[in-house]
Amino acid sequence: MKIYRLNSPISEEEIKKLLVGDIVFISGKAFTCRSKLQRAVFDEGIVLPKDLLQYEILIHTGPIILETEENFDLISFMPTSSIRFEKWGARTVKEWGLKIIIGKTTMGEQTVKAMSESGCVHLSPRSVSPNLWVSSIKVEGVHLFSEMGSIEAPWKLFLNELGPFVVDIDSYGNKLFENLDEQVHSRLDSAYKALGISEDFKYTRLN
């Protein structure tokens, strides 16, 4: 396990160095995304605002941001589960030119494949610590606010050593959580035994 501090723009070499289990702190421009934005762009023909195409860090999150007269006040930030955005995951990686996706959990097969092909990694939080993260984030602006609302609009952020996040999908298609899940499953048989669940147990079919 290595610890990296990355600044966007990030080179292909830097992405290639990252391996599952490594820890990353990240600086630079990023934007936020949830299903509504993906559906608008990929299903409803809304054009992604051009300046976002220059961003290479996407964060799956729905922050709490209060609008004041002068600016936007970031109250709380926590990455949300990426797995639910799988439907358009591969297209976001390729068409939006992403190098890093930050989100809770992980992504599915199609996105992992696209990430390997174009050199992108997925980072996942190890804790639930929004208050440790907000001071590393500056809100720079927002697009499509009236259409998307404050949770789902693409917020433009500037990150200052935001982290730590763990690399759970690297650019070689390795998946940290698949490895960890295999370890959990390898212990299931002895847990069944401790619970008195017999090896040949099968549910009676009720329908």
Partner: peptide
């Protein structure tokens, strides 16, 4: 650590 800050500053413990 984050939960302690939430208690002290009355901030949501989780964004969701």
């Amino acid at each position: 650590k984050s939960l302690v800050i939430s208690r002290e500053k009355a901030l949501p413990a989780c964004t969701d």
